[in-house]
Design a protein around this nucleic acid. Structure first.
Length: 351
DNA sequence: AACACGTGGGC
DNA sequence: TGCCCAAGTGT
């Protein structure tokens, strides 16, 4: 029967791993600039490191400081997030930058409770910023840490379950050391990303294997518990492609909902024009994590556009959507959903 | 508590 | 291929 790690021995092993094998040269490391650390933590939410790196570099180049970000336009910010997904992150980041400017005189707050009041920053991200930027002894609990802790202490159940999450936070708080917290937090994520991976973990090389309850009971595959499966629904839409004088008509999507704040092709549920006014392009399926979107792109003729523009420019009186015409160059200055961007690129290449 | 919210990598 | 899930948060 294996005895579990004591919090002290556990954190000592983790910190030792950091000095020997931890990642120390990612673009947001080697600095204590809270703005860069904050930006990286937001971009890294539910997003892999290799995906984030080029976005981070581009974003910092365009908005080097929180003041630059606060003063940027919505479209500029969304353009820099275009393709990264989870666009509420960008909207909240922008809002938070303006709050830091106005409420905190441009100085990033150091207290984790205050940090967590900023939009887009939850408990784990607040802990990461407080420890990395300000050396505070705050715990984090991302997917990597959840996996390492769930296996080390054989914490059963899916982390999306409230009780399981609470148990994981309890263990995270207990094991997080008061000293060298930043090294510990970084190493926990490194262990999860490099050694204690989702599939095929490298247990023989893991500094925690000696007292890892899952490893020593040969039940690594059981931890963390799996998310319950759900059927994925399907939605069908038509996308209207209206090109006049080298410009394409786009609509700005409302702030909430899918692709909020991005510019997309006008979308309708049903065709409302006669067949001679449209050209059906190749349909495709865009797969989200929570549903499939079946898209039928329709290329409009000049006769069809008037009624449709009128009909779709103002979906409701309360929330009029913005519509505008964009040239190819202007598409580089706004945020576009990935499938819209791909479709337009393909169309313009063919023409 | 359960679901919405994007996209791409890994197998 | 299709499925799982990734440095989570907001509602």
């Amino acid at each position: 029967m294996t005895t579990p790690w004591s919090p002290t021995d556990f954190s000592a092993k983790v910190i030792e791993y950091y000095h020997a094998h931890g990642r120390k040269h990612l673009p947001w490391q080697g600095t204590q600039d809270p703005y860069k650390i904050w930006l990286s933590e937001i971009m890294l939410q539910q997003t892999q490191v290799t995906t984030v790196i080029p976005y981070f570099e581009r974003f910092i180049e365009s908005f080097p400081t929180v003041t630059d970000l606060a003063q940027a336009t919505d479209d500029q910010v969304m353009q820099h997030w275009s393709g990264l997904g989870y666009y509420s992150r960008a909207r909240n980041l922008h809002k938070a930058a303006q709050i830091i400017e106005t409420e905190f005189s441009g100085v990033f707050p150091q207290d984790p409770e205050t940090i967590e009041t900023l939009p887009g920053i939850g408990r784990s991200t607040a802990g990461a910023i407080a420890s990395f930027a300000f050396g505070q002894p705050t715990a984090i609990l991302d997917g990597n840490v959840k996996r390492v802790l769930a296996r080390s202490y054989a914490i059963e159940g899916w982390p999306g379950n409230g009780k399981v999450l609470k148990a994981l936070w309890q263990r995270a708080e207990t094991n997080t050391p008061q000293q060298e917290t930043a090294a510990y937090n970084q190493a926990m994520m490194d262990l999860g990303a490099i050694v204690c991976t989702r599939s095929k973990p490298d247990c023989p090389d893991c500094p925690l294997s000696k007292h890892c309850l899952a490893y020593n009971s040969n039940s690594i595959e059981q931890y963390p518990g799996k998310k319950p499966k759900k059927a994925r629904p399907s939605k069908s839409v038509y996308w209207l492609i209206n090109i006049r004088q080298e410009k394409v008509l786009l609509h700005k999507r409302p702030p909430s909902g899918i692709w909020g704040g991005l510019w997309a092709l006008p979308e309708v549920q049903q065709k409302e024009m006669s067949p001679d006014q449209i050209q059906q392009l190749d349909p495709f399926v865009h797969k989200f994590s929570h549903y499939d979107l079946q898209v039928q792109p329709l290329l409009l003729s000049s006769n069809a556009d008037k009624a449709l523009v009128e009909k779709n420019s103002h979906p409701s009186i309360m929330e009029p959507a913005q519509a505008d015409w964009f040239s190819l160059n202007q598409l580089n200055e706004i945020g576009l959903p990935t499938p819209v961007s791909k479709l337009l690129v393909k169309l313009l290449e063919d023409s």
